[in-house]
Structures are given as C-alpha cells and as structure tokens.
Design a protein around this nucleic acid. Structure first.
Lengths: 212, 212
DNA sequence: GTGCGATGTATCGGTCCGATACATCGTGGT
DNA sequence: ACCACGATGTATCGGACCGATACATCGCAC
C-alpha cells in the first residue's frame, strides 16, 4: 500500500522523504496515524532500485529565485519515472482482497481522482461487499453468542455494527453519485498525466466519513 | 496486543490454537478481521517458553461423558498459569500510547470486565484524548489545506472526521456511565479469578459501537 | 468407499511500526 | 556573541503481525 501511496504522491510533485511523510500524513490522516520512517525509507530505496522513481536534482523548477543554496545538505529529492507511472496505474486499478480492507480501500480512495469511473465503482462495490460481510458477522455474534459474552464485549460489537452500517450507507451514496455522474471528482491540478475522466459536477453536499 | 488477548481468553477456559482463533475472532470481530495463524502459533510458543501458559491434558473437565477419545490426535490444549494471570493483570492495566490506538484500545475494551473501574476510566479517557487529537488534525487539514486537496481526499477526511466525532460521543457516554456506576459490566461467568468489581446494574439502553 | 469441508498445526517471506541515532537549519533569548 | 531548542532531514534495527502455503485427520453425505 505504501508503494501505491508514494507513487501517487510523487505524481503531483517531486519530493524528499520528510516531505513525503508530511503529505502522506495529511492525505491519509483519516485512514492511519502517520507513516513511519522505518517503512518509508526502505520502500523509497526499493522503488528506486526497481526504476520506478529516480533522484531528481534539487530545486525542482519551483521557487527559482533562491538558486544559490542548491542541494541543501543531504536531502534526496525523488521523482517518478515513466515505469513508475505505469506501475501506479496498474496498482490503483487492481482488485485483490486487500484492495477492500480498511487501509487498502482508504489509500485507493485517496487517489480516486487519478482513476476512471469504472474502477472507482468496482472498488466502491468491492468495499461495500466486504463491509456488509463484516456487518453480517457482527449481527451473527450479537444474535447467537450474545449470552456468552460480557456487556463490554457486546457494547464493542454494537459500536462496530453501527460503524459498518454507517459506512455502507456512505458507500451507497458514493456509488449512486458515481453512477449518476455527480462524483465529487475535482480533476486534480497536479503535474498532469492522470486519467482525468468524464464530466464531474459539484461535490455532494452530503458528507459522511471513513475511519478504518 | 495478541499476548494480552490470548492471556485474557485462556482465563475463561483452556483452549487449543484453532479454538483460540475462533473465539478471538468472535470477541474482537468489531476491531480486526481475523487473527492469523502466522502470529498466533509463534506467540503461543513464546508464551509457553515464558511460562505464562502450559499444555493442559486434553478433556478439560468439561464434557466428561466422552472420555474414550482422549487427546484427539495432534491438538495441543493450553491453559494459563499463575504467572500468566499476573502478566495479564499487568498488561490490562498498563498505559502506553499503544493502549490508546485503535487496536490496543479495542483489545483492552474487550477485556474491561476483568479490570477495575479506575483502570477503565483511565483507558476510556486516554482513548478519548487520542481520538480528539486525531479529530483536531482532520479539522486542521479540512480547514487549512482544503483547496490543495481533491474532492475525494476531502470526502475521505470528512468521513473520518465524523467517525471521530461519533467515537468521542460514544466514549463520553461510557465515561459518564462508569462515573455514575451504571457501567455495562456484567461480571463474566468465566472460570473465576477476575477482579469483578462494584455494583453493576443493567447495561445502557443506548448503543454506539466502535470499529477502529 | 470416497470425496469434501471443517478441524488442526506449522513455517516462511514480506510489510510496516516504534525506538533510536545522528546531523543541520533557523530563530529567539540572554 | 553565543547557544539552546525545535523543526528539518536521513537512516537502521528488532519486533509484531499478515498472507500464502503445506500438510494431516475427522466426520458426514452421497
């Protein structure tokens, strides 16, 4: 998942590790706490070894009025390669079970602006299915095993069940929006390249949120 | 976290790995998907090496009318030791940052019936603080960086924000209940030993649920 | 009698986290 | 003039947990 997220972010602008972490934390703040360096740096090196990203020379075109202090100390700025973009497209569209779990779905959703509607619908529906299964599991436990469980455990299940129900409702709204062309897709202002699809009118006034 | 959960469950009854997994999945179904064998079995062996659990002879007193087929093939039934109980008490009451993250809090909460009210309150409040911080972070992003983010990312943050708000409300109810002595603590019917505290009247008619 | 799904134990590689270490930059205090 | 401190920045190590996989037996239905 980290790989997908890094590739996605680097498509917006070249960045060094520290910056990547901050952006990632902001973008995925609803999903996970904060990305750790212990996974970030090794992944960066793996990606570079695979030719999906390369080191860019500092001062990435932006802010050229302070060119004097080029390559500020040890910073390593990465940028995505053509292979990296291909890989991203492959990853963002792929449908494995992990695409639908909490983290996987969250990351995919965060980069929905870089996919086409068909993919978005497929992922939204896969996620809905998964959450519905979880919901049924919880209902089962609450129904069949209720007397075996203590009140706190029961309360936990009830809370989880409600969260599932809420998320299913949220997903259904999103699915309906996609189907009717009213997707909240504000075609990103990034460094171009993204599939940027169909007409995409104003975002839904409704809001529900996700916190897997 | 797995260690705490295993120790907690084995306090209710001796069990073998497969059973442990099923019970764990039922009890923690609101928190996490399913505990994997890849972590369960190694943890079991670690716990045994540390003297916190031991192998029990099959046919654990229950169901003595079918004693003929004792030790059904390769099953290894574990039971908790006195040291294990001590360790559990230590773990359930301890307050680290990970006690308040999604998984950690969930596991602690699932075993709330085995702690005292003061500990429950401390954990509930720690969790509330953590969720409030997350909530503030999301509000910040939504406020300050809104125009930099695409509509999907924004929608994700909104969903996350609502989930945080809901959880804080839920936690506040639980805290109020604990304070007023109306905790949903149905002293477990397990194999005794648990701290089983104060008077604990009927569970709250209210229900919210948690799904970290 | 035989095939198949549930029961059951076990290992391996991989991903990610948390702690830790270390160095530099810019700013404010004294 | 000095320096302390917090933000910036890169890096590694051990550990927790997952997903895939392998393998064997039990009990039941056909």
């Amino acid at each position: 998942m980290l790989e997908l997220a890094i590739l996605g972010l680097l498509q917006e602008a070249p960045m060094h590790g520290y910056e990547l972490r901050k952006e990632l934390t902001a973008k995925l703040g609803a999903i996970r706490a904060a990305i750790s360096y212990g996974s970030l740096y090794p992944t960066l090196r793996r990606l570079q070894a695979a030719g999906l990203i390369t080191e860019a020379d500092e001062t990435p075109a932006t802010d050229p009025e302070v060119p004097a202090l080029t390559s500020r100390r040890g910073r390593v700025v990465y940028k995505i390669t053509a292979e990296g973009k291909e890989r991203f497209a492959e990853l963002i569209g792929q449908a494995g079970p992990e695409t639908y779990d909490d983290t996987g779905f969250g990351v995919h959703f965060a980069f929905f602006a870089r996919t086409d509607r068909a993919t978005r619908l497929r992922i939204l529906e896969g996620r809905r299915r998964k959450v519905e299964e979880r919901r049924e599991g919880l209902r089962d436990v609450l129904g069949r095993a209720a007397e075996r469980l203590d009140a706190y455990t029961l309360e936990l299940q009830r809370h989880g069940l409600e969260a599932c129900e809420r998320e299913v409702r949220w997903l259904e709204e999103l699915i309906a929006n996609e189907r009717s062309g009213r997707a909240p897709a504000a075609p990103h202002t990034g460094t171009a390249g993204g599939p940027r699809d169909d007409t995409s009118p104003p975002p839904p006034g409704e809001s529900r949120t996700e916190r897997p």
